[in-house]
Design a protein around this nucleic acid. Sequence first.
DNA 1: GCAAATAACGAACGTTCGTACTATTGTGTG
DNA 2: CACACAATAGTACGAACGTTCGTTATTTGC
Lengths: 202, 202
Amino acid sequence: MRKGEQTRTLILNEAVALASQVGLEGLSIGSLAARLAMSKSGLFAHFGSKEDLQLLTLKQAQTLFFEQVFSPALKQARGLPRLRALFSNWLAWVKRNDDLAGGCLMLAASVEYDDRPGAVRDLLVAGQRELRGAVAKAIRLAIDEGHLEPHTDPWQLTFEMFGIVLATHHDFRLLGDARAPERAGDALERLIEAHRAAAPRA
Amino acid sequence: MRKGEQTRTLILNEAVALASQVGLEGLSIGSLAARLAMSKSGLFAHFGSKEDLQLLTLKQAQTLFFEQVFSPALKQARGLPRLRALFSNWLAWVKRNDDLAGGCLMLAASVEYDDRPGAVRDLLVAGQRELRGAVAKAIRLAIDEGHLEPHTDPWQLTFEMFGIVLATHHDFRLLGDARAPERAGDALERLIEAHRAAAPRA
DNA sequence: GCAAATAACGAACGTTCGTACTATTGTGTG
DNA sequence: CACACAATAGTACGAACGTTCGTTATTTGC
């Protein structure tokens, strides 16, 4: 029970790395086993099916995202500081090149499964809904703190922030544009400025 | 020479539709042949390799994009009208559900090939560069026409417009959010408003 | 309308896919 | 130390993959 969990986690971490390059569908049990220097059947025994492996891999990526992007942002003061921290952690996540060599797995999977019904897509949608809700909540808190003007629509702002992240991912990954994160920062600041509350400055 | 070209085009159109759902990598010669009720080998004979098929499929999608998004926008008056037309055509392209049932093929391929060097990726990058340049040029014209203020950075604005489109694609396709295009329109108008020239109103 | 050219076919290649069984090794505990 | 069982390896499977081959059908140019 102990050794099993251990290698299982090892497998899943490697699976996240591999899937970030070739996608969740392109992730094959054979190649994953080869990368871990273990037998295909030995690896397969940890999961009942490929879909299970895909689901757990995606779940692992979601956990990593929460730990590295969201959780540290919660330590910042509510309002704009937390919102900015969230955004900058998010950009850092997108830029990662170590164990996410192929870019954000969730974004890749979103495109891969947006028209492929099933458990993977459902998990993807649930995670995305959760993320959006959390960002919108952070924005609502910024309004409550008096950092953003009361008329601000949290969902609209969330939508636009997400767009900036997507564009950054695209430009950074496909076009290899190192200035993309800088552009993203500028875009966010302009966005904040447009919705900043008149009276108190943050 | 005539019959060949004809079925080749037929194949490529079907390939675009199929690849938009399963990706350029997931596009298999066997399933494509089955959809067209022809033999695997007969289809394969039109292309020397799978990579050739992928390249031509992508090229076909790029052509469709130019015809349906870009070309009609050029008929509008330069400046904001043309920029708005371009954006709205782009949104319409993203929302298509007939022969692009799986969403924009270029966006899907961008995520699929962003870390897979080769001819497909090169073609993808070239197309993206061309598109970005054209959008930036439309913005520059809007500045020249006095619709946008002279300090506007065309590349930054292009980046942000692209982000809005990406977010729309994501929300519309994965989350099934029908209000996404509306959000996109609002975002664009706010973006334009922020950069609008002071003196003459458009 | 005949001959040359092209297009489509069916079968088979070797490989890899996911999955199922069985055997062997390894680990933790009484 | 040995027993029980978890963990890994081994082997085999049917199907699908991209690709090649030789052959048949169908267009095309004269």
